[in-house]
Write a protein that binds this DNA or RNA. Structure first.
Lengths: 157, 157
DNA sequence: TATTGTTATACTCTATAACTATA
DNA sequence: TATAGTTATAGAGTATAACAATA
């Protein structure tokens, strides 16, 4: 059913012309990582954005939503649904500051800490599998190179 | 305006907890490349998907839309608007095959060839700037590592 | 006047189901 | 029945404008 009379149509379609581009290879690698990450977080009821938010809140207890948005490089309005969800699920508390009642102080609850610990372990395991074909030195240099490329953007790390 | 009485709120919000993850660094590097790519292609009236489509058609003249979709890893319906646009702009021709009148044979027009050549040069220049902090050897090993990670996904290249 | 959190909105990208015409 | 192209649709993800409360 395949190569019967393929005279006009290209018999083997290749993406070789896109392979020399860094962006193409980076995007394809990201697709793999992303799909794996989604599948890893799904059983925990987390998405990339909620996992990232939990992680940053866990390391910066008391931060505001605006600070969280900056750290995650997303716009403030897009975080409202995220903090709503995390708060409703009892993973994060939003306390009004007495000194400035406009802002919330975001903190993990005990349940939030536990879920974050489990999710972090799951993501580490999933990344270890993707890293598997690379040596320790290669992994370090890969991340260093990605950060160099990232720094070409805003100039900031 | 910064550190006046930051007692409850974290003074310095950091994403350090996400930095050890490969996925986070890859995504941030992709954000930079993507933003640059969009800005590079915009003056030519191209998006990532239209540029990629032109490139693959240019290397595989006569391929079908289904083959193009496979090469670009997108679903067939999402290519309709793309080929419509490229056809309307006179960059690509869609010829019915006599042997199978269901399928189109996609080919670049002379104008499509010219635009592709210009766009390819522009993207090469934009990537060279992002690559700048990396040595030739590093660039090769970066792409090789990205392809190893990609191969962990489907097993296919 | 400026900022925090919020609402409403819109745009892009992408995926699925179902149709048509051909095979 | 199976496939190519198509239509309609829906879901993420993300961006902007504008508002109320507070500073």
């Amino acid at each position: 059913m395949v190569d019967r009379e393929e005279t006009t149509t290209a018999p083997k379609v290749t993406d070789a012309a896109l392979r020399p581009f860094l962006g193409f290879n980076l995007r394809r690698a990201w697709n793999v990582i992303h799909a794996d990450l989604v599948a890893t977080l799904e059983p925990l009821g987390l998405r990339m954005i909620t996992f990232s938010a939990l992680t940053v809140i866990g390391e910066n207890p008391g931060l505001s939503q605006a600070q969280l948005a900056t750290a995650l490089s997303v716009e403030r309005p897009n975080l409202v649904a995220v903090t709503d969800e995390l708060s409703t699920r009892g993973l994060v508390t939003r306390e009004r500051l007495a000194s400035d009642r406009r802002t919330y102080a975001l903190k993990l609850t005990a349940a939030g800490e536990r879920l974050l610990a489990r999710a972090t372990e799951a993501v580490r395991g999933h990344e270890a599998a993707l890293y598997e074909p690379l040596s320790d030195g290669e992994r370090q240099s890969l991340i260093a190179m990605l950060q160099k490329i990232e720094s070409k953007g805003t100039g900031r790390s």
